[in-house]
Design a protein around this nucleic acid. Structure first.
Lengths: 349, 349
DNA sequence: CTGAAAGCGCTTACAG
DNA sequence: CTGAAAGCGCTTACAG
């Protein structure tokens, strides 16, 4: 099953007429011993000639390091690999890993019967992983817990509590969105987010929004909540039912871009125009947010930079350091999906 | 750096009062020896108690198997990890791997200075990989080549020539799209695809389309080609310039859905209505194709099933079998983006 | 500056 | 049915 002939260190050594130790030291740039440049050249040359590649399993077994990081996105609320948000992050991680000489494994563990699948647990305990970058937003259970138990260095992406994290400022993002709508003059606002208490980031964004409404003097009865599932479909439905029940709403705040796009489509289906009849805002600033018609007002929290930051932290962690957690820049991006409410609307309930 | 205390087989053996060999055999379900159910129970129990997880590096070193597959999408024409098409495939592969007990590594090698990056080559020669699922559509150079050289079992996804593949029928897909437009009555058709001779699948789709036009008696001068890059942006521009130069065009065929969506947006920007003023078709049947307004007429080639099929083939290959390559079902999905040309249009040039 | 040797944690003939 | 031993391909003290 194995490739017919894979040259080993011994082959290199023999060919270069040195011991295996010497070959190993030269090939790994060991600071031990200053080999004559002649020896060094011989080894390098021999290695080249026979196409030597170190066996990573052997190296890993002896050194306790695999040069493999894993990115884990639990399969729960969401189907991770088709969510653009997740992809943006993975793309950044893959680039950074590749630049720094790490390989990247992807894992999307399932949670059932009170625990994560055995395959995931086996991976964590296998010694294969030098580190894990993990999104762990579900309040009800933690995919990070088994990582900690296994003693694998971890960096969290998002809002679960952990000393090493990369995240945006979700509270502030929610705040900015609400402030933007209020300053445009909206007075009846629908909000679509995950059920309260389920998801760290969604909760924070919502809290930022509610607190800000209060600060601006808008009573809670003027905010209309509808549960969503972070998917386009869920918000398509949610937006329609929200406006069926509360036609006085003049602005819709979706707690991610995917839902904002769903809401936009839902509103178009009812014949409303965006932003003339209703304003819509999202969160994440996915590429898609700029491509919808009209383009979405949303929050940018620099997700393209998360992957690189997370990998850097993991590398530092492995080197025995205590990396600073990273709160990424979070800004409001105003585009065409928001405008003041039409005259005579939004001012009385 | 390694977890402080990782129990080994020896720990299990000691605790269960058996030899390491016995512990190993029981834990790996070796058919060698029929252990007394009492011994078996003791070992299983001990293993449970101390939370034993096999060290995969050791296992891999001795067995020559890692239980790791890699999915590789070269970073060339495209930025793989944000293309939904790629993601659909990866999602399928990840599920299938997880079900069958394999871990999944992702790699997106860069091609420069006439070869792929060292990191990729090192991975292939490392002995870490039990198999590779690879997309290798670029005519100019091959990411599959080094895989073969390294002796790693491979399955190709798409149209590069190789005995083990999973793909749709791109020639037939291109054919069906063209036939659909011609039967609606279109006589001046724009086509946006990758530059001829660059990309296997794009070329086949184009060839299917051109051949079919000829078969229907439409002269080649009535087909207007514009190079694209498989991205939304490229088609947004391409569609506009195509119609600037050839306003007689009544239908646009984009060789993937992403470009079809770009074309749709490009046409909307010029004030055209879809499908009244111009019909648009895509390829792939991504979820997004059904969500645009109007939804896209496109080709479905079952990409959700590709991952599972590819993993199955790899598993069979590793078992010494000769898996049948798979041509996946390829069908025309007619939606709202196509209609007959308006009266008096498309009939004279 | 270089080498012989031990050992990482497993699996698997080989004996019994 | 069970165990002692060799060995997978490396790295790294320990000697010289």
């Amino acid at each position: 099953m194995k490739r017919d002939f894979m040259p080993t260190l011994e082959d290199v050594a023999r060919r270069a007429n040195v011991s295996v130790s010497t070959a190993s030291r030269i090939l790994t740039n060991d600071r031990h011993g200053r080999f004559s440049s002649e020896t060094r050249a011989r080894v390098l040359h021999a290695s080249q000639e026979i196409g030597y590649r170190p066996n990573l399993a052997a190296r890993s077994l002896i050194s306790g390091q695999s040069n493999i990081f894993a990115v884990v996105f639990p399969r729960v609320i969401d189907t991770p690999f088709t969510a653009l948000m997740v992809l943006q992050i993975i793309a950044g991680i893959e680039s950074a890993c590749s630049e720094r000489g790490y390989h990247l494994l992807v894992s999307s563990p399932r949670f059932q019967n009170g625990q994560f699948d055995a395959h995931y647990l086996q991976l964590l305990g296998s010694g294969y992983l030098d580190g894990v970058i993990i999104q762990d937003e579900n309040v009800a259970f933690s995919a990070l817990e088994p990582v900690i138990q296994a003693g694998v260095p971890a960096v969290v992406v998002g809002n679960r509590e952990y000393p090493y994290f990369v995240r945006g400022d979700d509270y502030r993002g929610g705040s900015m969105l609400m402030a933007h709508l209020l300053e445009l003059g909206h007075k009846r606002i629908g909000i679509i987010g995950l059920p309260a208490g389920a998801h760290y980031s969604s909760d924070l964004r919502a809290k930022g929004a509610f607190d800000t409404a209060a600060r601006y003097g808008l009573p809670p009865e003027c905010l209309f909540w509808h549960d969503g599932e972070f998917t386009r479909e869920s918000a398509l439905t949610a937006s329609r039912s929200l406006l069926d029940r509360h036609p006085e709403i003049t602005a819709l705040m979706a707690l991610n871009d995917r839902m904002a796009i769903g809401a936009l489509q839902g509103m178009l289906q009812t014949g409303r125009r965006i932003p003339e009849d209703i304003s819509i805002v999202g969160y994440d600033n996915l590429p898609q947010a700029g491509e919808s018609i009209p383009p979405l007002t949303t929050i940018d929290h620099s997700i393209g930079l998360w992957g690189g930051a997370a990998v850097d932290m993991l590398v530092e962690l492995r080197a025995g350091g205590q990396p600073q957690p990273r709160s990424m820049e979070t800004t409001l991006i105003v585009r065409g999906s928001t405008a003041p409410p039409r005259e005579g609307r939004g001012h009385s309930g």
